[in-house]
Amino acid sequence: MNVAHPKAHLYSSNLKEIRVPEELLQRSTFWIATYAAKPFVLIMLAMTAGLTIGPLWVAIPVAALLLLAAQRHFQTLIHDAAHYFYSRNPARNDTLANWLAAGWIGMDVARYRKIHMKHHAHNGSKDDPEHVSFATVSTDGGLAWMIARYVLGLESVRLFLKYFAKSEAPTNKSEAPTKKQSGSSSKLWSMKHIFVCQLVLAAVMAVSGLWWEYAAWLYLAVTWNPLLSRLRFMAEHPGEDDMTVTTLATVLENTYFAPQSFNYHLEHHGWPMVPPYRLSKMHRFLREEVRFYDDRGELLSPSYIGKLLELSHDRNEPKGVQV
């Protein structure tokens, strides 16, 4: 049995005519648990590195890289939870997502979903709240200035306003505040998973004598983690239209740009109901059986960094000059 995917509008493609094998839509409790556990394993590895590596000047960068990898996995889980990764039951999905992923990096899945669904609906248009490209970055000071703003934490206020102050998310019935709660107290109640998760993480690291790892965790959460998401977006949506690119990157590159099969981004945009752990098979189906990519080489990229360098070069190359 084949299941037709929802209507999708993607650059130079007519995906609505492609039918997805039902096996690619099947959910797997094993893979859900595996994906959900990965960031916690990375945190434990970071703490182990902090406790066992002698010189602090070596322990700090090693632990920081592991902590950043954990945050990238959490970030991807929040994205997937916006598409009901944990459960098809909305309330159960959002509760699991908040406590198992979003709370650890200071986010809320329902608020994120409101913005992300607009991206899917208006991919590449002026109504896409997540859209960024080299053209928009250039008008705002250039790529180097964008990177500096994130690394220095100057973008953290804008991100907070985007996902919290300007995004009022519906509250799950199971977590509805009492009648006595209103206004700011209601907002605080809806973010309780963030406070609890951060308190647990800070306490565990402090008791272990790794207070500096929690300081690094907070810094990475408001700087490098969102920066890598921004750079990933620029590589996967590299134009002023709805072009969406799948990136066949190395394991290391995917770890920091798009872990947990997020790199199969065209497949995700075309068929968002396909679980992330099935996207690699979805890619093979498109590539080998449907032959979708045969005449659409521009929709495949071998590297995130390579794609960003290519786009930067194209942007900076003088117009009208042939090389």
Rank of each mutant, 00 (worst) to 15 (best):
Asn172Trp: 04
Thr52Lys: 05
Ala101Gln: 04
Ala59Asp: 08
Ser186Ala: 15
Tyr256Cys: 01
Val58Asn: 00
Thr246Lys: 02
Arg19Thr: 14
Val251Gln: 14
Ala176Trp: 07
Arg92Gly: 00
Arg88Lys: 13
Lys319Glu: 15
Ser208Gln: 10
Met47Trp: 09
Leu252Ile: 14
Ala8Trp: 00
Ser303Val: 08
Lys114Ala: 07
Ala33Gln: 15
Val109Phe: 03
Leu309Gln: 09
Lys192Gly: 03
Tyr11Phe: 14
Lys162Gly: 02
Leu279Asp: 01
Ser174Gln: 10
Ala110Lys: 11
Lys7Asn: 06
Tyr84Leu: 10
Ala169Val: 01
Glu317Ala: 11
Met44Ala: 13
His193Ala: 07
Glu175Pro: 01
Leu188Glu: 09
Trp212Gly: 01
Arg27Ser: 10
Ala144Ser: 13
Tyr112His: 14
Asp294Lys: 13
Leu56Glu: 12
Asp108Tyr: 01
Met191Pro: 01
Leu228Lys: 00
Tyr304Ala: 03
Ser185Gly: 00
Leu188Gln: 09
Arg111Ile: 04
Glu155Arg: 13
Ile32Val: 15
His283Ile: 08
Gly103Ile: 00
Met273Ser: 10
Trp104Asp: 09
Trp57Ile: 14
Gln75Trp: 07
Arg27Phe: 01
Val245Ser: 10
Leu51Asn: 10
Arg27Asn: 04
Val157Leu: 13
Gly320Met: 09
Val58Met: 11
Gly320Glu: 06
Ala102Val: 04
Tyr219Cys: 09
Pro226Lys: 04
Asp295Pro: 01
Gly239Val: 01
Ala91Met: 02
Gln260Asn: 15
Glu288Trp: 11
Asn316Tyr: 11
Phe160Arg: 12
Asn14Tyr: 05
Leu25Trp: 03
Glu240Val: 03
Pro55Gly: 02
Glu317Asp: 03
Lys7Thr: 10
Val58His: 03
Thr250Lys: 08
Leu308Arg: 03
Gln75Thr: 12
Asn93Asp: 04
Ala81Gln: 03
Pro170Thr: 05
Asp108Asn: 15
Ala36Cys: 15
Lys162Arg: 11
Glu267Pro: 05
Ser182Ile: 02
Leu308Met: 09
His131Asp: 06
Val58Glu: 01
Asn2Tyr: 11
Trp217Tyr: 15
Ser87Trp: 00
Leu143Tyr: 14
Val222Pro: 04
Phe285Ile: 08
Leu96Cys: 11
